[in-house]
Design a protein around this nucleic acid. Structure first.
Lengths: 350, 350
DNA sequence: CTGTTAGCGCTTTCAA
DNA sequence: TTGAAAGCGCTAACAG
């Protein structure tokens, strides 16, 4: 059952008849060792396939130069962008990144946290959606002095920094854009109306309607049947498809739709085309995220771009600050601007 | 500089006036402890914010129930699919997954390996492209008794299992498909002709031409100017764009193109459209991977699907076998079939 | 039921 | 230039 035993420092020392410390000095190239001894040791290290045991070393040093990133929805291209930004920023400060996926449930969130804590990472960045159980665990972890930063997770706790895109304004501007184009019956796909509190994009949509004195028709807001919980990327495409079908079957369907994210929008576009309707002629559509695919759909998708790279960089920097400081710094929060990208799914060129 | 000290088992034991072992027993819920003592301990654990130190525990137990996955090109959707498949398979056996990204260089590969080894993962799955330095390190790691499985990496070594898609046949069939459609001048985008050895898809292309007595025109095979090394996802789109431009500027351009992967194909499509040419009328195009975007391009992209989930599952299983067995099992190799998916970028419907 | 002893593999500190 | 001792935080094994 057990992995074959590793060769240890002591093994080397024993076969060579020197002290383990001597071997350690050679391996870490610090301290004085005679060239002769060094050679002997290096030789043995090679032939015996010795590898230093990092766990033991870390136990002593009390740090691992590693940080963990908990990622939901890894299929979504912008998760990848985020991860890369985080990694690059950490890399330049000599830190390594371990990514844990938690795509479906609070349980997975918690397992990821535990697992990272168990490996004594120096800090954790959490980029999954909020959930009660997970939040509770997270608080415990923070209380045990682990530096933590969250990205786009609705989690307020002393000592935990927070980075997010301004989804509220983003949702507002997407909707406003449709209103400016003359639309009055505007649908929302991807969340239930009762989630307005937790989904800022939906709230932005509602705010925009209100500002322009457009009454909210709750039948135009459609999510999925089951509860929304850690929805993985491509399955949201299906949600968009089904949501759009529901909207189209209404006696008085919308002339425009704002989708929770680009995958959802793409699913909705499929449904619209299947119904023999034109985009944006019959129904205009806006997404959110600006994934690479958005430029390749037909027509190309109008969407709200969020600055993923920047979010990743900032989160990494905030975490490094927490790791570096002896005193726990004040909680910081950064909400980043989004940008409306207008393409042909809402406005025909020329 | 140092993180604020963690509360330890011994701290708890000291303040409670019991033995560390007693606290350990409570925390791990094994062994007999009186209800009274248990309560006291649990109480202290809460109020003092104690968290077990996994590193120390692992040092003792000599295993971590964690495996590492080294992933290149995380922006590519099929990497995400792979990661998920691996994780799900491991999860069901009680193992955790740490993902390391190595997108650019051998150095990053090596850092990832070292970092995982340092954390004493129980095994490593490597899914990055082969490179000399990385391979060398990998051999060292294998020699030190770490279970290793590679996915799609051209790395042959005793004790290292290997899973891959049948890129050779896949490339052959993609090209054959174009030949069957009557094409004779068929380009390849995404690799240099001198990489034919390491890139099976290119070799498949060459083989197909040969079988059908079509002479290879080296000007029709175009890669990028710089050396090919760990090419990240979306940058290959640019490579496709530039490669296609080069092909179009030829005195006698191809009537069909096989692209190294779907991103490359999509980039090429952009170039074709910009030149005012039609797909597949003027130029037919085939990609590789069948990423979700392939169904949404206009026209939808003919491509070769590779079974990513299956590759992930198999790799995980092979690794678990290596971790579990006392004796090192024989090296196993599994090459999985690909499937040609015909869409409108090569054949118009009806 | 609880405590003691020893040691995982390494490094820090001090002594030779 | 090298070695010996102690201990990082935890747990297996044994003793009380």
């Amino acid at each position: 059952m057990a992995k074959k035993r590793q060769v240890t420092l002591t093994d080397i020392a024993a076969t060579l008849g020197v002290a383990p410390m001597t071997v350690s000095r050679v391996v870490n190239r610090n301290g004085y060792v005679s060239d002769e001894t060094r050679e002997k040791v290096l030789q043995a290290v090679k032939t015996m396939n010795y590898r230093p045991n990092g766990v033991a070393r870390n136990l002593k040093r009390q740090r691992t130069e590693t940080v963990g990133l908990v990622l939901g929805d890894i299929s979504n291209p912008y998760s990848a962008e985020l991860a890369n930004a985080v990694r690059e920023r950490l890399w330049s400060s000599g830190y390594n990144l371990f990514i844990c996926i938690s795509e479906h449930s609070a349980t997975e969130d918690i397992t990821a946290f535990e697992s990272l804590v168990d490996h004594n990472v120096d800090g954790i960045i959490v980029a999954t959606r909020s959930n009660e159980e997970g939040d509770e665990h997270l608080r415990d972890i923070v209380d045990s002095n682990m530096p933590v930063v969250v990205i786009g997770r609705d989690f307020q706790y002393e000592g935990v920094d927070h980075v997010a895109a301004d989804n509220l304004t983003g949702g507002y501007e997407a909707t406003q854009h449709l209103i400016d184009l003359g639309h009055r019956r505007i649908g929302f796909i991807g969340a239930d109306i009762k989630n307005r509190g937790s989904l800022k994009r939906l709230q932005g949509y509602l705010n925009a309607l209100k500002t322009h004195d457009i009454e909210v028709d709750e039948r135009l807001v459609t999510g999925r049947k089951e509860a929304i919980s850690g929805v993985p990327g491509y399955s949201t495409e299906k949600m968009g498809y089904e949501g759009m079908k529901r909207l189209l079957s209404l006696p008085n369907p919308p002339t425009a739709v704002f989708a929770r994210n680009d995958f959802t929008a793409i699913g909705a576009m499929t449904a619209i085309k299947e119904a023999g309707l034109g985009i944006p002629g019959d129904i205009a559509i806006v997404g959110f995220d600006d994934i690479p695919m958005a430029t390749h759909t037909s027509p190309p998708l109008t969407t709200v771009r969020q600055p993923m790279r920047l979010q990743g960089q900032l989160a990494a920097e905030m975490l490094l600050r927490r790791i570096g400081d002896e005193e726990t710094p004040e909680r910081k929060e950064r909400i980043l601007n989004c940008e409306l990208i207008i393409r042909e799914s809402t406005v025909l060129p020329g």
